[in-house]
Design a protein around this nucleic acid. Structure first.
Lengths: 203, 203
DNA sequence: GTCTATACGCAGATAGAC
DNA sequence: GTCTATCTGCGTATAGAC
């Protein structure tokens, strides 16, 4: 029955999130986390015992947010194709707000796949899987038949990689007299909506 | 006039490449590079002075290979739309052979954008920019009008992210009774060709 | 050129005062 | 709970023998 969420603990978690997201597990420095939290290094260990455990907490939160996006898929009041459009929009909004999240996930997952798998399983209670919903939509004849897994991969790629590789795209853009900015999100969404319609919109 | 490429130097570079690609600049350990090269740690410093300089050499090679892909775009004997298809295919073949390359680039670029920009400039001699070629194609009426930068981002996303986020996709696939394997490359290519045709193929 | 041994610094973790 | 001071281990880098 612990009602007391220590203020300090929250501050630390917030600082840890920002540092871990920027530098990853191994790149992050406990000193920097302490600095951003405005406290001492030793206090980090007092609250979270060690770096891995602190990271775990941050990672857990990140994963929760990541999977939380999928819930829109379960809104039975909307036709499936609309849910897919919303899903893409939310995905991009999420990444706009936490641009480091994707690369943060990838970095650590690629270093420690087993850990990731274990953690994902803790979040799998939801049936809000795009692939599931797509298959459902195909059975009902609500959408065009597609390879659901491939569609999922394509869609997530279109949404995510612009954020993951933003530094690269910015360089390419400037070398070509083009723009690649946050304010291109709307155009990105439109482009993806077009993709979705081309692939699964009923004729 | 140095004709003599030291055998040891090559072996070290090969080992360094594999370790740096797997763990990144800061994650890589000189000891592990030495181990994979079958030599001693001190010898690394003898040949390359320090870790950063060794990394530089590897990074340089990676960038060269990365940009080398673009050359197919300049083959005037082919219609532009075919070049774009080839470009995508080559991109995927490249990433199949060096699956760590993309994430390797992203990791380090996101940590040190300035360095990346400087290095890219050293490779910019080529006019083989997809964006340039697209604009050319539009002027000639060879392809449908599109936002060239957005098309570039979409296309690169579709090609690259499946490799970058492979661990994640594998987990998702297995949780949904689907497959996500190297041997899905052909299907991935087909999917991307469809995207290209939808976007820019003349009616 | 290649090795062993070692110096050096950094970052995570702990001890212990307050 | 929060701090300062300190220990410890690891990883880069160097010295120096062969």
């Amino acid at each position: 029955m612990k009602l007391k969420d220590s203020k300090t603990e929250e501050v630390i978690l917030e600082a840890a999130k920002s540092v871990f997201m920027e530098f990853g597990l191994y790149g992050a420095r406990m000193q920097q986390i302490a600095d951003r939290a405005g406290i001492n290094k030793a206090l980090l260990h007092y609250y979270f015992r060690n770096k891995e455990k602190l990271f775990d907490r941050v990672f857990e939160n990140a994963l929760a947010r990541y999977f939380q996006n999928m819930e829109v898929l379960l809104d039975e009041s909307q036709p499936i194709i609309d849910r897919v459009h919303s899903y893409a929009d939310r995905f991009i909004d999420f990444l706009s707000e936490y641009p480091q999240m994707a690369i943060f996930l990838i970095k650590e997952v690629s270093l420690n796949q087993a850990l990731f798998e274990e953690k994902v399983n803790r979040h799998k209670k939801e049936k809000a899987s795009l692939i599931l919903v797509l298959n459902q939509g195909m059975q009902r004849g609500e959408i065009q038949p597609v390879d659901a897994m491939m569609f999922f991969v394509n869609l997530v790629s279109l949404c995510t990689y612009p954020f993951v590789a933003r530094p690269i795209f910015k360089v390419v853009a400037s070398k070509n007299g083009a723009q690649w900015d946050v304010n291109r999100n709307l155009a990105l969404k439109e482009s993806i909506h077009e993709f979705i319609n081309n692939k699964i919109k009923p004729l």
